[in-house]
């Protein structure tokens, strides 16, 4: 937050932000979706992404700098594909002011907390509010309680998470990047909630 003042203001007002050139990218069968992960540092955002994209889990913590960009395509049962373009943001405080750069124009925001850390749950709620204020209208939000394998250290109950998500119209799931539990489900559930282009091409032509 401390360095927010020094950011050049050039990006504000440009809704484009870090958005891929979407023209022609989407049709009814092949969706391309910008997804951003937000949450406190150390909750496992990068681990979730790496588990999803590469099927890997690295227990040594590597602090994300700025934001990492990865993409992964999944196929749904109705034979559509969804290509996620994922911005894995740094949870460090100094990057908080940069978050709009990454969530602006995002169709999906995944807000992550650590079920063993009430502080990270509070931080998740901060991000939800921020997204409600400044995120794209109609953004799909998911609340994710990560590190579900650490049951014995749990400090945020499933109920607390689910209730908060429900109140804010979010999709809720608990995951473990370590055991891969619910990771794919998370992204599949998101895919189901994506608005499908309603065959505008037919009308146009």
């Amino acid at each position: 937050m401390g360095c927010s003042a020094s950011l050049p203001d050039r990006s504000s007002g440009r809704l484009g932000g870090l958005n891929p050139d979407n023209s022609g990218g989407n049709d009814a069968k092949n969706l391309r979706v910008k997804l951003v992960l937000l949450g406190d540092s150390g909750v496992g955002k990068s681990c979730i992404v790496l588990r999803f994209v590469r099927g890997q889990f690295d227990p040594t913590s590597k602090v994300t700098i700025g934001a990492s960009f990865l993409s992964q395509t999944i196929a749904l049962q109705d034979s559509t594909t969804v290509k996620y373009e994922i911005w894995d943001t740094a949870g460090q405080e100094r990057y908080a002011a940069l978050a709009p750069l990454y969530y602006r124009g995002a169709a999906v925001a995944v807000v992550v907390y650590d079920i063993t850390s009430p502080e990270s749950f509070a931080k998740a709620q901060y991000w939800v509010k921020e997204l409600q204020k400044h995120g794209s209208p109609g953004i799909i939000m998911a609340l994710v309680g990560n590190k579900a394998d650490l049951q014995e250290k749990r400090e945020v109950s499933v109920q607390d998470g689910a209730e908060y998500a429900e109140k804010n119209g979010m999709f809720f799931i608990e995951t473990s990047a370590k055991t891969a539990d619910n990771i794919n489900q998370l992204f599949e559930e998101i895919a189901k909630r994506l608005p499908r282009p309603s065959l505008p091409d037919m009308n146009a032509s």
């Binding site: 360095c3 020094s6 950011l7 050049p8 870090l18 990068s46 790496l50 590597k62 602090v63 994300t64 700098i65 700025g66 934001a67 990492s68 960009f69 990865l70 894995d88 740094a90 990057y95 940069l98």
Partner: peptide, 27 residues
């Protein structure tokens, strides 16, 4: 020294102190 750069392509604000100590560039 920042391991995360090895994982995937990244985009991060950085400042070059001798170039302009007051402003971020984007790397």
């Amino acid at each position: 020294s920042s391991e995360s750069f090895r994982t995937s392509e990244s985009f991060s604000p950085i400042c070059l102190p001798r170039y302009n100590p007051m402003a971020f560039l984007y790397a």
